[in-house]
């Protein structure tokens, strides 16, 4: 994907340019739908999540510049978070979890903003696989399957606090692995 092109489209969407919104949709909807389908499995729910995601994209495009993410990360994170939200609502029959991370607004430039390059992120898979004791699977479970600490603890048959310690060590290793 051409980063500049998508960034430019988001900037125009922030100015309520419908033609740009149309073009942005055509450009990224297939990737986002893939993500929604991966998280939700059910097609009808994935379609609803897509609809919600694009409404958020239209309404919040003006916040994009402030958060320092690459444009595809911003868009995919909205689709992923919206889908996880919907998944948890389905599982629990109630809605008590805000879309995680979605409201993120960094009010100004920050030191780490440009540290994480896309190429660095692409190494994540290898680093996740290198993690010990299913910790990589736990990270994937949380990110792609919306697993909570309770879900993960049950899946790996450990107490929640142990799970949390695992994950903490796993994420620390992950950060180190990816910064090599």
């Amino acid at each position: 994907m051409d980063r500049d092109e998508i960034e430019n489209l988001i900037a125009r969407v922030a100015l309520k340019d419908r033609k740009a919104f149309d073009a942005l949709y055509d450009r990224v909807s297939a990737k986002l739908f893939g993500v929604c389908l991966r998280v939700l499995s059910k097609r009808a729910e994935a379609e609803d999540a897509m609809q919600d995601s694009f409404v958020k994209i239209w309404n919040h495009a003006d916040r994009y510049q402030a958060n320092g993410l690459s444009p595809m990360t911003w868009l995919i994170t909205i689709a992923r978070n919206t889908s996880i939200d919907r998944l948890r609502t389905r599982r629990k029959g109630h809605q008590d979890i805000d879309t995680p991370g979605f409201e993120l607004i960094a009010p100004g430039p920050s030191p780490e903003q440009s540290v994480v390059a896309a190429s660095e992120a692409a190494r994540l898979s290898g680093c996740l696989d290198a993690l010990a004791e299913n910790r990589g699977a736990a990270v994937r479970g949380a990110y792609l399957d919306g697993d909570t600490y309770a879900d993960l603890a049950e899946r790996f048959q450990v107490p929640i606090n142990t799970m949390r310690t695992w994950l903490r060590r796993g994420l620390l290793s992950l950060r180190e692995c990816m910064s090599l």
Partner: peptide, 24 residues
């Protein structure tokens, strides 16, 4: 906020191998 952004940037790589599907 920058820490969160950095993690989002790292985690998003988990979607790299998700194939695009054209929505209806």
């Amino acid at each position: 906020a920058a820490h969160i952004a950095a993690w989002q940037e790292r985690f998003v790589a988990m979607t790299d191998d998700i194939a695009p599907v054209t929505p209806p």
